[in-house]
Design a protein around this nucleic acid. Sequence first.
DNA 1: TATGAATGAGCGTTCATTCAT
DNA 2: TATGAATGAACGCTCATTCAT
Lengths: 206, 206, 206, 206
Amino acid sequence: MDTRTGPAGELDWRDFSEDSLPPLLRSAVHSFVAHGYHGTSTRALAAAAGLSLPGLYYHFPSKHAIIVAVMDCAMQELWQRSMAAHAEAGDDAMRALQLHIECLALFHAHRKELAFLASTELRSLAPAAQNLHIAARDRQEHLLIDVLQLGAEQNAFDVADPAQLARALITMCTGISQWFSPTGPLSATAIAQDYVLYAQRLVGRG
Amino acid sequence: MDTRTGPAGELDWRDFSEDSLPPLLRSAVHSFVAHGYHGTSTRALAAAAGLSLPGLYYHFPSKHAIIVAVMDCAMQELWQRSMAAHAEAGDDAMRALQLHIECLALFHAHRKELAFLASTELRSLAPAAQNLHIAARDRQEHLLIDVLQLGAEQNAFDVADPAQLARALITMCTGISQWFSPTGPLSATAIAQDYVLYAQRLVGRG
Amino acid sequence: MDTRTGPAGELDWRDFSEDSLPPLLRSAVHSFVAHGYHGTSTRALAAAAGLSLPGLYYHFPSKHAIIVAVMDCAMQELWQRSMAAHAEAGDDAMRALQLHIECLALFHAHRKELAFLASTELRSLAPAAQNLHIAARDRQEHLLIDVLQLGAEQNAFDVADPAQLARALITMCTGISQWFSPTGPLSATAIAQDYVLYAQRLVGRG
Amino acid sequence: MDTRTGPAGELDWRDFSEDSLPPLLRSAVHSFVAHGYHGTSTRALAAAAGLSLPGLYYHFPSKHAIIVAVMDCAMQELWQRSMAAHAEAGDDAMRALQLHIECLALFHAHRKELAFLASTELRSLAPAAQNLHIAARDRQEHLLIDVLQLGAEQNAFDVADPAQLARALITMCTGISQWFSPTGPLSATAIAQDYVLYAQRLVGRG
DNA sequence: TATGAATGAGCGTTCATTCAT
DNA sequence: TATGAATGAACGCTCATTCAT
């Protein structure tokens, strides 16, 4: 929840040039996406990471801890980027919506595997971790609801049920992670622009 | 609201009063949704069905065959309802869009678990079954793409990239299965109406 | 142990024209030879016999009872043929040896599967049945030992250890069931003649 | 009775003082002989080896791999001993026959369980492994056929059908593994001598 | 007789995890 | 740090057998 304000500079929420995960988690994400949490064995995780099985357990206390780490990274990265986009938008509801959707779309395109896991493997978490992530997800969702609510109150948007529309917008963006391909015809940036247009239309101002 | 137009036997695509699954598959859907395919043991499936483990294997040759049966039912039911909706719409692109979205939304609300599985457990299928279901999913997707294309050509819609928008619409509707609750404040019918409005706006005619 | 003496005539111990097993046991022998007792399931037995599984259990109380029946048939048939051959031989030790070996060789060629089982699946029998068959096998073996002993005492044979030689002769003949083929170059009759010669040589009178 | 003729490293084919199997395979042989491959469970194998079930699978990838390893050892040991015996015999056909039979008899007595398995569980092997072992068995059989053929051509033996007689000799020796007991009245060496005599008689020179 | 439906026990195998080295 | 060796528990599945019909 720390949006850096120090000399190193504000986070550029549009920059996905650096990978956000340590190598071990990177390969774990790959495996989890391909076969699911329960469909991935610790041996497979170790092999994918180039480690022996006990080597894996040196870095993480359990298989569960690995997916928790993955999902923590996912939620944290999305949250920080969302906060940065929000900060850039200022008080304008329409601008906030545009940047929020752009942020969501970029994230689900550039971090498609991570994003996919975050929405898929919630059920695989132990109850405690699950509750934490549901809270984080709700917090993230409310960011958008608040934007829609604000826009509706300001008559900037024609939106009857902000919560309902927020869910529609979010799942729409989440879907990107299921079909986006970095080698496909559409760049992440182009997709994000399209989705911003979709969002404008959905709030009745397209 | 009986939309049957032909002789007895036509499907009323808005009628979800009857369950579409035999009891054994019904309980399997429940388990698979809760823990995923790989997270559900055959013993759990048998227990949920009120059977012993060999009893389960009397009815299905393998665990895999169970999820294939489930996904077959899902795709087939959605396809038949979609075709019926399409038939009701006739040649009007806007009407076709409205009924298609209504159909999708109703299905993902009323059959939320079945629909959720169909989009979640594709990766758990063996290659052959997977290919079959990818083909069915693509066929289903093209139904909507064609509507959007037609509307665009007729200038009924303002849509630049029908395939792209179709994916957005579909994932939007698919998302319903993740949060809809039959005991929640919104009925499936109400949600479907909202989503039809969303669709109209997304094609620039809302 | 009954060597028929009635009007139907003495058993022709060289005649293998009729199958000695009811069809169900016939197909069971086939399966047991191919995969062994423990490698053959009751389902496989039922299928091979053209029966349903409960149908199998109508005829036999258990899988074990089936192999017991098979082995009973094997031992009984060999015993009866051996007794008939013996009766034909009369008091001449050399003639008794010749006919005994001819009998063994013919049996292991013409009834190769049955004979193979009888020597292979003894270990699969329950203790009680196992003891019975070991006794029958020993009785059968003593038939030959007695012939050798008699011949040795009469100086018809040059045999130091009749029991030892009997085992050699018997396993030699038993081996026929492992490689004999009814479509091969050697007929059962020809093989039997060769083995009679082998036996004569082994008793030092070839 | 050290027959080594070359530099250190030549196998003494009459020396059975050392066990030829690692302990795990040793106990597996025991179990397989007692109950057959299909009648022996992996749990029984593990228990006999003093391991837990996964411990067994740490050393071997499957139950099948265990019996393959056993049969490989059996065939290889017999082959090496046979070759050494052959080398010792030189060009003399009768001497080759004598040593070959001595070698077979000693092997089937001293390695009775291993030898018993090699001739019993061929059918339990998967097709690929089965073909390999059939080839090895045929190669082993041809060793003796060639000796008989050579002796027949040299008029050292009176043998009409070398292949036929080879089978008789081999099954005769194989039979030893079924009744030999190290605590019985006959030593392996004594039995081997008897069987050499049998062989001499069978080739018409006893 | 024959079978559809079922089951307790056990199969071969793999799981996540541990620990001495 | 890293690994070879191990394990209790559970996996998907099949076994021989039964019984109502």
